[in-house]
């Protein structure tokens, strides 16, 4: 009976995951391997294709384009293009935070926690979740962006000026290793819930109910991995070890953003991201 409950929990979280996250790993891997049958993603590999890619999308992810329909005719400096791209990334990240929040609320017991603790769990967990969710979109050569409509090359991201060029490379290094574990979307759903329900986040008021919830999800994840990957030895332990790498990645990411805030006069950080990163690490 206990196993049945854990399987039901896994099924519930997988359904929530599919409901709130539009680009699944299955879909992303199909796009990356050219098996979708649709047209291939637009490839951004230099400044020119970046501008063309923005015009290719020309929709809600690009609010600045809508405000400036003359952009196609204006010769912009690479600095301006980089900064605008960074703003678009922020806009998408804020939307992703909303998706993660909805997923967190669907974890059984989460909305019953102290509201302050719900805020803390999201504040500290959401960037870790976003980094994990980036992994399926990446391969060693680049990453899908804009819901899989665009593929941006790793080399192009490395060619941006400092510190923009330093932002994605650690995520590529992490993702290439993480993808070797070959988790699927149903495994990912449970792992994301485990990350969100971390009882050691600073400032939590009532740790016990969070740890209890996490323990149940951990059991569900362990069972899921045994059933879904019977030949992958110690997979559960290997997955959990990734949580240590994640914390370091987030710490470095937040420091880079803080550096950007100091060095880029034209940079404004999305208010939701500001709220999350303020006094984070």
């Amino acid at each position: 009976p206990e196993s049945a409950d854990l399987r039901a929990l896994a099924k519930h979280l997988y359904e929530s995951y599919l409901k709130y996250f539009p680009l699944t790993k299955a879909k992303a891997r199909a796009i990356l391997s050219g098996k979708t049958g649709d047209s291939a993603p637009f490839v951004i590999h230099d400044m020119k294709s970046l501008t063309e890619g923005e015009q290719f999308i020309n929709c809600r992810q690009m609010p600045l384009m809508e405000q400036r329909p003359d952009l196609g005719m204006v010769q912009e400096s690479p600095d301006e293009v980089e900064l605008r791209f960074f703003h678009s990334c922020q806009f998408r990240s804020a939307e992703a935070v909303r998706e993660v929040t909805e997923f967190a609320k669907s974890i059984p017991g989460f909305v019953g926690l102290d509201l302050n603790d719900q805020v803390t769990l999201l504040k500290y967990g959401v960037i870790e979740v976003l980094i994990i969710m980036m992994a399926p979109l990446m391969n060693k050569d680049g990453t899908l962006i804009s819901y899989g409509q665009i593929f941006m090359t790793r080399e192009f991201l490395k060619s941006l000026r400092k510190p923009f060029c330093e932002m994605m490379e650690p995520k590529f290094e992490f993702s290439v290793k993480f993808n070797m574990l070959e988790l699927d979307d149903s495994d990912m759903a449970l792992f994301l819930a485990v990350i969100i329900l971390s009882g050691d986040r600073p400032g939590l008021l009532n740790v016990k109910p969070i740890e209890d919830l996490q323990e149940t999800v951990l059991h569900a994840l362990e069972l899921q991995l045994k059933m879904n990957h019977p030949d992958s030895l110690q997979l559960f332990a290997k997955v959990l070890q990734k949580m240590t790498d994640l914390r370091q990645l987030v710490t470095d990411h937040v420091h880079l953003i803080q550096l950007l805030k100091k060095t880029e006069v034209d940079m404004c950080l999305h208010p939701l991201l500001q709220e999350i990163m303020k006094d984070l690490y």
């Binding site: 909303r98 909805e102 509201l115 805020v119 709220e275 303020k278």
Partner: peptide, 21 residues
Amino acid sequence: LQEKHKILHKLLQNGNTPDEV
């Protein structure tokens, strides 16, 4: 904490999008 995280708090309460907030 909720005071310092008004947008997160609002997302948790009613799920408005960041832009609506």
